[in-house]
Every structure is written in C-alpha cells, then in structure tokens.
Simulated scan of single mutants.
Amino acid sequence: MSTTLAGALLGLSLLDSTSFGTLLIPIWLLLTPGRLHPTRIAVYLATVAAFYFATGILLTLGADAALQAARDAFSGVSPVLLRWCQLVAGVLVIVLSYWLEARARGQGDSPGRVQRWRARAMAGSGGPSGLMSLALVAAGLEVATMLPYLGAVGLIANAGMSWQLTGAALAGYCVVMTVPALVLATARLTAHAKVDPLLRRINDWLTRNSAKALGWTVGGVGIGLTLNAIVALATDP
C-alpha cells in the first residue's frame, strides 16, 4: 500500500468518524446518568465497525462486476441525458429530505421513554441486543450516505492489493473511525466532571435538532448530486 493511499484512507476514516452513527449516538449514550459500563459502548461501536467492515467486503467483491454492469447498461445513453437525470434525482432527494424531517416532527417520541431505555441499556440491566440493534439501524440508515467510506472502498478496490491486505485496510479503516468515540468514552470514565459539560451541550443541541438530523443527512446527498450535475452540465462540452 502506498503512502498516498494510506493517507487518503486515514483522512476518509477520520471524516467518517464524525457521522451520526459513529459519534453523535455514542455521545448520547455516554450522557447516561450514573456509572458507565465501558463494555456497553464497546458493544455498540464494535457492531457499527463490524457492519461497515462486512459492507466494505461485499462492495469490494462486487465492485468490478457492478462497475462493468453500469458501463454496459449506460453505454448507449448520452452523457448529457445522464447528467439531467442526476440533476432531477438530486432535486427529488432534497424534497425527500424535507418530507422526512416533517414526518419525524409529526411522529415524535416521548423523551422520557427514550431516556429510560438509554439508562437501562447502558447500566447493564438489559442485554446487549438493544445496543446492537441500535448500532445496526444507525449504520443501515447511513449506508446510502456513507460517501467517505464508499470513496475509500473504491480506492481500495482499484489499488490491486491482495485479499489479505484489502481486508486489513478495511479493518483498519473501521477501527480508526471509532477512535474519537473511544477517546470520549475514556474521558467520560476518567474525567467525568470535566467532560460532562461538553457532552451535555452537544446532547442539548441533538435534542433540539433530532427531528432534523435525518433530513440534513439525506438533504446533503441531494445537494451533492445536484451541484455535481450542474457543474458537469455547465463545464462539459
């Protein structure tokens, strides 16, 4: 593996470490009142990392076949028409993001019930299955928006590495993207009084904006698609 590739993967993994599933949910879990069981946050992060790793393996295995199938399917279609289709798709995704946000606000949830579930899950009175389910749901929702990871998988798939090195690169990526959450968990365990105010400020922000989170995520993808299509249509001959 070249130094350039390793640096690119490191940067992408650190970017992925700030996503909703890898950082914001762990912060919310770390704000559980009382004694924190480190194994609980470890179960959550390990499940997220395992999901990403398995997804990366599947994508790497099918990357060449998928790319060739896409080339064959669209070989006879005008690039300009494809860009217009991308533009329409981007606008539709942006509209979808507003609908998702409105739906989340309309459904809502009982804050007390959510807080009680968190306390049980993190205090050890319940099994790890709840945390594992939360991790899988969070990672599953991010599949369509894990753009840094998709970029990393593309770099790895095109690097011509052996399967052993490919697996090691994917595993290393998944470990690195959990590091910020692990650092915060360690700080929560060793310096709770100093770290708690920062975590609470972040938690207050999440509470106020929880209904917007999914809409922002989906809307970001739509904006990216739309802007990319507009730039391509304006610059391509």
Rank of each mutant, 00 (worst) to 15 (best):
T4E: 14
L5K: 11
A6D: 05
A6N: 04
G7L: 15
L10G: 06
S13P: 13
L14N: 04
F20I: 13
G21P: 00
L23H: 11
L23Y: 04
L24I: 11
I27R: 03
W28H: 02
L29C: 06
L30M: 10
T32V: 10
P33W: 05
G34P: 02
H37R: 15
R40E: 07
I41N: 00
V43C: 12
Y44L: 06
L45T: 08
T47S: 14
T47G: 05
T47L: 00
V48F: 01
V48M: 02
A49F: 01
A50N: 04
A50P: 12
A50G: 10
F51A: 14
Y52I: 11
Y52G: 00
F53G: 09
F53Q: 08
T55Y: 14
I57Q: 13
L59H: 06
L61P: 00
L61A: 07
A63N: 14
D64N: 14
D64V: 12
A65L: 10
A66E: 03
Q68P: 01
A70P: 00
R71P: 00
R71C: 06
P79L: 11
P79H: 07
R83P: 00
Q86K: 10
L87R: 02
A89K: 03
A89H: 06
A89M: 12
G90A: 04
V91D: 06
V93S: 02
I94L: 13
L96W: 14
R103K: 08
A104Y: 01
A104Q: 06
R105T: 13
G106M: 11
G108M: 04
G108S: 11
S110D: 15
R113H: 08
V114M: 10
W117D: 06
R120Y: 03
R120K: 12
A121M: 11
G126A: 14
G126S: 14
G127H: 07
S129C: 00
G130R: 08
G130F: 01
E142Y: 02
M146H: 05
P148A: 07
G151A: 11
I156Y: 07
A159V: 05
A159T: 10
M161I: 08
Q164H: 09
T166L: 11
Y173H: 08
Y173A: 09
V175T: 10
V176P: 09
V176L: 15
T178D: 06
V179D: 05
V179E: 07
P180M: 07
L182G: 06
V183R: 02
V195Q: 03
V195E: 04
L198A: 14
L198H: 13
L199D: 05
R200T: 03
R201T: 10
I202M: 03
I202A: 04
N203V: 01
D204Y: 07
R208P: 05
N209M: 03
N209H: 15
S210V: 09
S210A: 14
G215S: 10
G219V: 08
G220Q: 08
V221K: 00
L225K: 00
L225H: 01
N228R: 09
N228L: 08
A229M: 04
A229I: 04
V231W: 08
A232V: 01
L233D: 05
L233W: 05
P237Q: 12
